[in-house]
Write a protein that binds this DNA or RNA. Structure first.
Lengths: 333, 333
DNA sequence: CTGTTAGCGCCTTCAG
DNA sequence: CTGAAGGCGCTAACAG
C-alpha cells in the first residue's frame, strides 16, 4: 500500500508538495504537479482517509440516518442522495435506526459521534429533544428531510398542503363522505408527516362544512392500508372516497376495495401520496412528492453548506404535484 | 470534544489505561476500569474513529456495494445487513455503483481504497476481472451475495436450481407451453443470476423433451415484466404458463394478463422468484429466496471472518423455497 | 496491572 | 513555489 512518501520519493519532491498537488490546496508548480500526479497514478496511491481526516478533521463522508431501509420512500430518497453524493466524491455512512430506545441512543451518542462524518441527513425521522440535541452537538451541518423539526434545518414538502390538496381534489369532484387512512392520533407527534397530512384533511373538510368521520390509523404499508380500508368500507354508510396518506396504503385500499367487489373509481375514489412507481399500474391518483429529487436536494444542501454556504435560512420547501391517473372520479350519487 | 487525555486526567490514570479499559484489549484492574468508564461517561467521551483506525488499521465499518438502491431485492438485503451489523457495533459505508465504467472505476479504485473499511459485501454485482482484482487487492474479507463469482467468496442461492424448481413446478402441473421472462442471452453474463435461472428453465424443459420457446428478455421491473408478458401472451399459440425470473416481473406479467382479459391462474399460470412482499397481494406463487436473511448471513460471514475465522471454504449456498399462493394451476387443456 | 513512548499517514504552518 | 517539522488522537509495544 503505497504511502505519501513513496509518491514524494518517486516524484522527487517533498510530502508537503505531494499533499498540495493531490488535494489542490496550496500552490504547486505545474511541473511538480504533473510529476506528482504521474507518480501517484503509477504507484496506485490513494490517500488514507483515516490519516487525512485525523489531520484535517474532514472525512468526505456524509451520515444518512433512516428509520427503514426496505420501504419505497426511504430507499428512493436514499438513491437520490447517493447519486448526488457520488458525483461529488463523497461517501455515505448509513444508519438505520429502529424504534428501540437503547439502540437509538447508541447510534446517536456513539456511532454518529465516533465516526467522522462531515454532515448528516436524516430521512423522516422523528427525533426527541435529546436526539436532536445529540445531532446538533456534532457541530456539523444537518439536514432533515420529510417532517418539519423545529430544532433542525429541514427540507420538506408542506405536508399540511399535501393533505389539503388531496382532500380538496376529492371534494372538488363532489365527494362528501371521505375517509382518511394515515396518522394515528395517539402515537404520532403533531408535527409528524402523517399528522400534518391528516390535519390538512381535517381542516379542508371543516372549511367545507363537512364533519370529519372515518379516520383510520394505519402503518403506511400495503397491508395496513388494506386492513384500514376494509374497515371503513364495511361501514353501513361507507365513504365514497378514501384519501390514504401514502401510495402503499392507497394501493392496499384499492386491493381491499376490489376484494369487496367495489370498482375504483366507480364505486369508490382513492387517492394517495408519494409517486410510488407501482401507482402507475393501479391507475392510482396521487400527490407526487418526487422522492428521488428530495434526496438529491438534501445532498446538495449539505454539500453547499460544507462549501461554506450559510445553513439554509429557516426551512426549505419541496415541490409536490397532484397526478390524476384515474382512481378518482365524481361519486355516483 | 473530550479527548482520551481528558478522560485519563479525570480518572487519574494514563491514556494507555483508558484505551485498554475502553477497548477491552489488555489487562486493567477493575477499579481502574470503573473509574475510566465513569469518567468517559461523564465527559461524553467517544473514541475518534479516525485516530483509532490510523493506529489500529481497523475501522469498524463494512463497505456495501450495490447496483441499485431503489429495487426491492437490494434494499431488503441491505436492511438485513444493516440489522446484523448494527447489533455488532459496525457501521455501513454504502456505495451504489451505476453501469458507467468511469464512475465504477472511481468507486473501486478510489473510494473503496481510500476509505478505511474492514470488509466488503457486494450484492448481485457483476464484476469484471479488473474490478474483482481491485476488490481482492484491498486485502480484506469480501463476501459477494447473489451470483456466483469465481473470483470471490460468494454466498448465493443456487439459481440454476431455482430456475429448475420453478419450471418443474409448472411442468408438474401439466404445462407444456411455458414461457420465460428474464435474462437477455446477449447482454447477461453466463454466470449471472438471470442467466442461471434461465438455464435452469431451459435444462428442465429439455429434460422433459419439450422444445424451448418464448424466452423474453426483460429488465426485472414490473414494467419490463408486463411488456415482455404482453408480447408472449399475444402470440397465436400463447403459453399456458409463464416463469418470470423475479417477482416484480411476475407481477407485471399478472397485470399484463389481466389487461388482456386473461385470468390467473385459470387462463395462464404465473410464477416468480424472490418472495417480494407484494406477491401476497397478487396471490403470486414464487420461489422465495429470503432476501433479508441473505443480508444477515452475509454480515455474519464477514464479521466472523474478521474475528479470525477462515474465509468460508468455497461458496456458501443459501436456502430457497417454493411458495404456492395460487397463481399457478393445471392448464385448462 | 500501569505508565512511557514511539509511531499510524497525512496536512499545514512556518521559514526559505 | 517548496521543504522541514510538529501534531491530529489513539494504540501497542516495552519497561517497570
Amino acid at each position: 500500500m503505497a504511502g505519501i512518501d513513496d509518491v514524494a520519493r518517486a516524484a522527487g519532491v517533498s510530502t508537503a508538495t505531494v499533499s498540495r498537488a493531490l488535494s489542490g490546496r496550496g500552490p504547486v508548480s505545474t511541473a511538480a504537479r504533473d510529476r506528482v500526479l504521474a507518480a501517484a497514478a503509477r504507484l496506485g496511491y490513494v490517500v488514507s482517509s483515516a490519516a487525512s481526516s485525523l489531520a484535517t478533521g474532514r472525512t468526505r463522508a456524509i451520515g444518512v440516518v433512516v428509520p427503514f431501509l426496505d420501504r419505497w420512500f426511504f430507499s428512493t430518497v436514499l438513491a437520490g442522495i447517493s447519486d448526488a453524493l457520488v458525483r461529488r466524491g463523497y461517501d455515505i455512512t448509513l444508519y438505520s435506526v429502529s424504534a428501540d430506545p437503547a439502540e437509538r441512543r447508541r447510534v446517536f451518542d456513539d456511532h454518529l459521534r465516533r465516526r467522522g462524518i462531515d454532515a448528516v441527513i436524516t430521512i423522516a425521522l422523528e427525533l426527541d429533544a435529546e436526539e436532536s440535541a445529540s445531532l446538533r452537538g456534532l457541530g456539523i451541518p444537518i439536514v432533515a428531510i420529510a417532517g418539519p423539526n423545529p430544532l433542525l434545518t429541514t427540507l420538506t414538502v408542506d405536508d399540511l398542503a399535501v393533505g389539503r390538496a388531496a382532500t380538496a381534489h376529492l371534494l372538488g369532484l363532489g365527494h362528501r363522505r371521505v375517509a382518511h387512512i394515515g396518522a394515528d392520533a395517539v402515537t404520532d407527534a403533531a408535527s409528524s408527516v402523517p399528522a400534518l397530512r391528516r390535519r390538512g384533511f381535517e381542516e379542508t373538510l371543516a372549511e367545507a362544512g363537512i364533519a370529519v368521520r372515518d379516520v383510520e390509523p394505519a402503518d403506511f404499508t400495503i397491508e395496513g392500508g388494506s386492513t384500514a380500508a376494509a374497515r371503513v368500507l364495511s361501514r353501513v354508510d361507507p365513504p365514497t372516497a378514501v384519501f390514504a396518506a401514502s401510495d402503499e396504503m392507497a394501493i392496499g385500499a384499492i386491493l381491499a376495495a376490489r376484494e369487496r367487489g367495489l370498482r375504483v373509481p366507480d364505486d369508490v375514489s382513492i387517492i394517495g401520496v408519494d409517486g410510488h412507481e407501482l401507482g402507475r399500474w393501479f391507475g392510482l391518483t396521487t400527490v407526487d412528492q418526487f422522492a428521488r429529487g428530495q434526496g438529491e436536494r438534501a445532498a446538495d444542501a449539505v454539500l453547499s453548506e460544507l462549501d461554506g454556504a450559510r445553513p439554509a435560512p429557516g426551512r426549505g420547501t419541496l415541490p409536490f404535484e397532484l397526478v390524476d391517473r384515474g382512481s378518482t372520479a365524481p361519486p355516483r350519487r
